[in-house]
Design a protein around this nucleic acid. Structure first.
Lengths: 314, 314
DNA sequence: CGTTGTTATAACCAATGGTTATGGACGTGC
DNA sequence: GCACGTCCATAACCATTGGTTATAACAACG
């Protein structure tokens, strides 16, 4: 029987070895419960066929077998870290993948069209999609988790990011079916200003404000919950905890029976854009952005020339 | 997010890289289904944030990132193998663990008694138990998987193994509840000779013969199934596929409602022994064997002086 | 056009990895 | 001696992961 260790098992082992305590290693280094750690170490011992720790009620000490594993555990975890770095570098240098960040489902036929176009313009390249939480307003661009992003504006307007609009849509509101406004065909935003809202995380910045309708407010919104993903947001709405704004297209894409979506009057439309780091001169980034724009609906891009526009935030 | 790879993931990756085919790697190298392999490689790619294989309907080729991982994957799998060997050697040399092999549950109060005694005689040592299949008549001793074993005789009588009897028990038979002999208080073996038996694996050798009642047979047994563990054997008996012999103590230990056990007349008793490699001079092996004998029931060891006795095999 | 071979995806179930609750052993302080 | 706190192990339970079979889509070939 070949026992295939997981680097995490080795991290667990190292934590216990260094802390000399299951409880402290679990709670202070690994952030798991003590029984989970006890169980994992026991399994590792059984797989290896030997005891790695001498357990005394007061102390946990490495056995000679445990000492032997200690050296290897350190080496293996370091080697794995080096492997990940090598893979990341090779990927970036060889450039066969475009990593695309997104916060909400893209839909709108955009990705199939872009994928087909990219296949012609950059043969052999692949698109890899990464969902990023609303907590990161740069949609993974700031820390290089992705190469490009498909994001709802506004994104941080510091000049670090550039974008082109690929869709423009009216604002809708998501309500619980029993909400007093659920029966209206259209909802004036004035009727929503005092409603409890489900907000984006604070770190979302201007995006949070936009989706609270800040452009049409004179005072802060009433916030009864925060959500990091659209899924979390809809769950909160369905439970009656609050309401949330969304684009018309997303009202359709995220349709569900336990949430009612209605058009809202009195708010500026929302815009979906392809976003990239301004300093990123890698050719595939341009190709991707151009391709997205070429695949966008004509009405969405009229009048937008790719320059950052003033933020409507408070 | 720290991604903790498992050596098995790397083995999967290496198999695909070398076969250049998911289907062949899955079925011929890894013995898993193709979709499972597809899913695991996809997950590895997502965790690393890059594509490792360019997939074409006809071929699977490594990307540059995949090539980078290839080197590390080989190194990590080799390092892990070296780690396991180092641990095994350290364990054996340092000697803080007695690995005890067994094929059937030991019971009979033996292990608690032995554990307590060993704690006094070898402070700091631990017992680690390994269940070994009936396919290995040496109960893990031949290949060094264990240091000592608690096994039902006969074990291979080549001189390589030594043993001391710790329990002696009459033979019982396990029958399906609806079996024609299930209602008898005691069953003569003559009534069982033509019954279909569940046998031990062929590789079990003399043990297989013993538990088919070879000592009282003139012709081969009728065998309708084989089992590698007691659990498998009982399942087959309960399903009506055949019958099996067992010791009196095990009839009690393995009691279950869907199997009837009855004493058998006409067969020599069975013997449970502590077994070790004759050439194994490590002191803890002697200590363990002595301790087992000291804890055995007096009636079991009368007349047994620890020498290998003639095998009753056919 | 039909057949074959390949990888991906879906639905489902088994196995693994986590949680909280509890137990037993030990040490310390009163 | 008793009460309490600390520590690791175990049990019961649930969520997540890893496997299966079935199926779909696509490309190549005859």
């Amino acid at each position: 029987m070949v026992m295939d260790v997981r680097v995490r098992d080795l991290r667990y082992f190292l934590a216990v070895a260094e802390e000399q305590s299951f409880t402290r290693a679990a709670s202070q280094r690994l952030y798991i419960s003590q029984p989970a750690l006890s169980k994992q170490i026991r399994q590792l011992e059984q797989s290896l066929g030997t005891v790695l720790f001498d357990r005394d009620r007061r102390t946990v000490r490495l056995t000679p077998a445990g000492e032997a594993l200690l050296l290897y555990a350190r080496r293996l975890t370091e080697d794995w870290e080096a492997a990940r770095l090598a893979v990341s570098e090779a990927s970036a240098l060889a450039g066969t993948t475009v990593r695309v960040g997104f916060q909400m489902r893209i839909g709108r036929g955009l990705i199939p069209a872009v994928t087909a176009r990219m296949r012609q313009r950059l043969p052999g390249w692949k698109l890899m999609f990464r969902q990023v939480s609303w907590a990161d307003p740069t949609v993974g661009l700031a820390h290089g988790e992705v190469d490009v992003a498909i994001a709802w504006l506004p994104v941080p307007d510091t000049g670090a990011l550039s974008w082109r609009v690929v869709a423009r849509e009216d604002i809708w509101v998501a309500l619980a079916p029993r909400h007093r406004l659920a029966g209206l065909p259209t909802v004036p935003f004035a009727d929503l200003v005092d409603e409890p809202f489900i907000a984006l995380p604070r770190t979302a910045g201007a995006q949070r404000d936009f989706w609270l309708g800040a452009a049409a407010r004179q005072s802060p919104a009433v916030i009864t919950g925060e959500a990091e993903t659209a899924e979390e947001s809809f769950e909160a709405v369905a439970s009656g905890l609050g309401i949330t704004l969304l684009s018309a297209g997303n009202a359709e894409i995220y349709h569900r029976d336990d949430v009612v979506c209605r058009p809202v009057n009195g708010l500026p439309p929302s815009e979906l854009a392809v976003v990239w780091r301004t300093v990123d001169t890698r050719p595939f980034v341009d190709v991707f952005a151009d391709t997205c724009r070429a695949c966008a609906r004509p009405a969405a891009v009229a009048g937008q020339v790719g320059e950052p526009e003033p933020c409507a935030g408070p």
